[in-house]
């Protein structure tokens, strides 16, 4: 069973969380054309390995970023999002 550590509440069963997809950087609105916007919306790395991704903890209502291995399900790190990444 996958356990995730909510930065707010500590370690919990994955059933309490919702997956928010891999973390992608939103391009600055002034630099966007059709292709870069489609990239941001749809294209994904779909890594077979460590992946930086969004999760939502339903009981406390907070979004955070986790680093998870997409094959072994090891979670190395979870933290609130920060602009530095």
């Amino acid at each position: 069973m996958l356990l995730l550590t909510c930065p707010n509440c500590g370690e919990r069963n994955v059933a309490e969380f919702r997956f928010g997809g891999e973390a992608v950087k939103r391009p600055a609105p002034e630099d966007v054309n059709r292709a870069t916007w489609a990239d941001y919306l749809y294209l994904r790395r779909n890594t077979n390995g460590m992946q930086r991704e969004w999760w939502y903890h339903t009981p406390c209502g907070c979004w955070f970023v986790a680093e998870r291995h997409t094959r072994t399900q090891d979670v190395s790190h979870t933290a609130f999002w920060s602009p530095e990444g």
Binding site: M1, V14, F19, G21, N48, Q51, T70, T72, Q73
Partner: peptide, 13 residues
């Protein structure tokens, strides 16, 4: 499964 993965493991959930 509710999250992306390359694992072929079965889950009790």
């Amino acid at each position: 499964d509710p999250y992306t993965s390359y694992s072929l493991d079965s889950t009790l959930g």
